[in-house]
Design a protein around this nucleic acid. Structure first.
Lengths: 338, 338
DNA sequence: ATGAAAGCGCTAACAT
DNA sequence: ATGTTAGCGCTTTCAT
């Protein structure tokens, strides 16, 4: 059997390679008769054109790379896994391969993945806030990218973010509506802009019902489950106990709840908790966590939309997702009917 | 600035493209002097050779695709995410892109992903047992593949599996050593061969201490959390209650425990549970689940090793991983010191 | 050791 | 509408 190329198909169909190429790409310039004949031969031979040739000709890799940071916690993986599902969905539509890449640390700094170094990607989706050094490198290489869940915004890059302030406001407001007034906050100050948003939402909701906040109740050193546990310890050290805690992330809530239980508090009878994200885990802990759901698959789909537009040279704007979808489970006590 | 190609570099260095190519690929046939000069130019210009050209020349895509089935449960995703980490680790070493693909259903049958249809992949790693129709199609296309966590073995394909019988034996034996004699089984009969292994391990451990088993205690219709819940209901319908249940998968255990609690049983005081897999969730439920850990990252690394060998034309053998690493948490009661 | 040239399989400009 | 041809950027064979 002859090696199957466009040339060979042309020979079999008794036409020129150009004709075959036109048929394959649904271009006009061939008669219906020729088109049909070519289609028959393609069908019969199961011919598929070589993507590698097209890659060379168009100088495109048809790869989009997902760059995820080697995470400290498997739960950020979980969060991103759901985003990835949205991306995959769209990738079929656009005809790109989705290539998984993780940024590994080389000593103290991040190492540029090979797929980027060798420009073997038409675009990049970064997960989570990404080191500026890396972004600059990518800018230099002239590869379009978007950042999903950047936690910060900037005119320097295109990002898809949840509206943290709204999220925070919604969560706090929910607690207030359930009769809570003494509400603590566990958040992260790692990304200052993010922290401000969270704090602002919390504050705006709270100032409608409360004039002062105990500084003990504002904890901003959480970055994973364990540190959230410690934050909760700090909160409980104070004589004034809050009746509810808003945690800016389900995984923080999970750590904080564990702490409260360890210290003998009942949840939610003694202290209520609300989170943000709705990671899969939240349904399974006890009590099941009340939280604000972020539509992560949607974030993924939007990221692809924006990135493909950028690849095609269109200009795009960052997106802020307004998620305020409260998932009511069992971690918040209703103070009004106790 | 000139477009950077091997030709351009050659011009700048005052040598032939051949020389540059040799230097890039660390081949001999160029003098040290030439080599050095070329290296300098490459360094100075930040030149990287075009992968797409090499793709065409070598007829290789440098892609390895991961094929995951659109799963009913996000927890199988979780399980596979850990395998993926092992695969990614190895991919750097071997220089392949890891491309994510999921098999979507088209009506009643699976649809071959484009990356396979267009032979845009040098090899495939299938996650989980895969429809024979798909495997045959891939065979026809002559693309090497391995199956990780196939749950069945066959001389038809190369797979990386945990030793289910050993897993099952170890779990049951552990319960026996804690003084349990009345031990039920929740498993899946979806893949017969797998079921036989699980049952055999269970039976072999059990027959050392028990002459008869109540048929009510053998439940084999679990395939997710909910069905495992139903299996547990069936077990509890019987007048004879087991003191422990071995669940052939953590997610089954999670469903079963929920059922037991719903019916007012205390875990592990009234009934003990042990699982298999050690998915991330198992640490977080209450009580934290005692389980047999499978080293999923290792499975991923081994899958890559085997696949790359296959791609290189070496012959390989399937691997059965002997995992019997018991992770003791709080879901099994010690009957001897009660 | 070095360089010229052919060719991987496709697309598109150009001529007919 | 159809065919001829050059060229994408690399590797390798074959002269020198």
């Amino acid at each position: 059997m002859e090696k199957l190329t466009i040339k060979e198909i042309a020979k079999l169909a008794g036409v020129s390679p150009t004709a075959v190429s036109f048929v394959l790409n649904n271009k006009k310039g061939v008669s219906e008769k020729t088109r049909k004949k070519v289609r028959e031969v393609i069908e019969k031979t199961n011919f598929v054109p070589s993507l590698n040739s097209r890659r060379l000709f168009f100088k495109k890799s048809y790869n989009i790379s997902l760059v995820i940071q080697q995470s400290s916690s498997p739960f950020s993986d979980l969060f991103y896994y759901e985003i990835t599902n949205g991306i995959l969905e769209k990738s079929k539509e656009f005809g790109y391969n989705i290539v998984f890449t993780d940024i590994s640390m080389k000593g103290n700094s991040m190492e540029i993945p090979n797929i980027i170094k060798y420009k073997d990607t038409d675009g990049i989706i970064f997960y989570q806030d990404t080191e500026r050094a890396i972004l600059r490198e990518v800018d230099k290489l002239n590869i379009p990218y978007v950042i999903v869940d950047a936690h910060s915004t900037s005119s320097d890059f295109t990002s898809i973010n949840a509206d943290s302030e709204l999220l925070s406001y919604t969560a706090t407001k929910f607690l207030i509506e359930r009769g809570h007034v003494d509400i603590a906050l566990i958040s992260s100050s790692y990304i200052p802009e993010y922290y401000i948003q969270i704090f602002t939402g919390y504050k705006n909701a709270l100032e409608e019902v409360r004039v002062s906040i105990s500084p003990y109740w504002i904890q901003n050193n959480a970055f994973n489950e364990l540190s959230a546990y410690n934050c909760m310890e700090n909160i409980l050290k104070n004589a004034l106990k809050p009746s509810a805690v808003f945690c800016a992330g389900d995984i923080f809530a999970i750590g904080a709840i564990r702490c409260a239980k360890d210290k003998g508090y009942r949840v939610p009878e003694d202290i209520s908790f609300i989170g943000v994200d709705d990671i899969i885990l939240s349904r399974y802990i006890e009590p099941a966590l009340t939280t604000i759901r972020i539509d992560k698959a949607l974030m993924g789909r939007l990221a692809m939309d924006l990135l493909v537009k950028k690849i095609n040279g269109e200009s795009v704007e960052s997106i802020i997702l307004e998620s305020d979808n409260i998932v009511v489970r069992n971690s918040v006590k209703n103070m009004d009917c106790s």
